[in-house]
Amino acid sequence: MYDLVIDDTGTGKLTLKGDLTIQHVQELKQSFQDVASQAKELHLKFTDVERADLAGLQILCTAHRSLVKGGIPVIIAGKVPAALREASDAAGFKGCVSDDDQSGLWTGG
């Protein structure tokens, strides 16, 4: 469900696909932990996400907080698909709470 490539400059490119849902949050957590341990910067791509639920939003939010706190900038690459945007709106997440409005996870891209 995810595709992680880390190049030799330490830039991690993580592409999330399909379902960002409870069934996949453990893999998702693992992928972010791989990023935390191996990358210096993360380019996160949501384009192929088809579904998202609360558990998916939670792990994204924690991953974002955790990575940024650990000095790994998170850059949203490409468009945030409607499925993800709708889920975050439905849950009332206005921008990622750990960040300001400009670089919030949901408002980016």
């Binding site: 932990q33 939670q58 955790s66 706190k69």
Partner: peptide, 25 residues
């Protein structure tokens, strides 16, 4: 109108159990 409370959501990947719910409204 929704006000989500995310205070309980862990800030670190090491601490989160992603299969638990931490949000309230």
């Amino acid at each position: 109108r929704l006000i989500p409370f995310l205070d309980d959501l862990p800030h670190s990947l090491a601490e989160i159990d992603p299969e638990r719910c931490y949000v309230s409204w």
